[in-house]
């Protein structure tokens, strides 16, 4: 992060001008290069499915494992372990563009609404499918590893699996192929493969 010398706003590395006050930011990224030890590099391993520590929602959607998805120019990306769920996706059933598909990446997928001002850049972006704003900017986190879990990260209108009880923030629930998820007022179907 680069702290603006005028208004103390924390700006993302690489930005030229402060997002808040427009002052020119000092050149150069403040971030340290990642040491060669793989442990510190979030690209290396998608975290295992969330244990209790997940009770504190992270400020930014963790980009942890996004890089493990195959990209057109391959780099030294670790191949997902044998048991990793592949080709998972969400399809809108009701309350949005019915039939719209959101592919789920291995690792963390934020469900929410696009809002650069609050740093919300969701993988499952409901900006255009949720005119009543029933979905919070950072609503839920879907984690794809050797299984798929969904966790409410403090949403206003709640997250539900198969019309069960409202998920408690911090307590991820497992979902499987064919399950139904309700986020705000939008119904999704989970499919795998």
């Amino acid at each position: 992060m680069i702290r603006c010398s005028e208004c103390s706003h924390e700006n993302m590395d690489g930005l030229e001008y402060c997002d808040a006050c427009g002052a020119k930011l000092p050149a150069g990224a403040s971030a340290e290069p990642v040491p060669a030890a793989p442990a510190a590099a979030p690209v290396d391993a998608p975290e295992p499915s969330p244990p209790a520590e997940a009770s504190v929602p992270t400020e930014e959607p963790s980009t942890g494992a996004t890089a493990t998805v195959a990209t057109p120019v391959p780099v030294s990306v670790p191949t997902p372990s044998a048991g990793t769920v592949q080709n998972a996706q969400l399809t809108i059933l009701r309350g949005g563009t019915v039939g719209k598909v959101f592919p789920l990446q291995v690792g963390d997928n934020l469900v929410g609404r696009w809002d650069p001002d609050s740093g919300s850049f969701p993988e499952v972006d409901m900006e255009h499918d949720d005119p009543e704003a029933r979905i919070s900017r950072k609503h839920a986190l879907i984690r794809v590893s050797d299984r798929i879990t969904i966790e409410d990260i403090g949403s206003l209108n709640g997250t539900f699996v198969n019309r069960g009880r409202r998920l408690e923030p911090g307590s991820p629930a497992e979902v499987k192929d064919g399950d139904e998820i309700i986020v705000g007022k939008t119904f999704f179907k989970v499919s795998v493969g």
Binding site: M1, M12, D13, G14, L15, E16, A29, A31, E32, P33, V34, A40, A41, P42, E60, T63
Partner: peptide, 16 residues
């Protein structure tokens, strides 16, 4: 791109 080479750091960063 604003840069051809970027730092492998642990944080998200901006590229123009």
């Amino acid at each position: 791109c604003s840069r051809d080479a970027v730092l492998s750091s642990a944080e998200n960063f901006v590229l123009y």
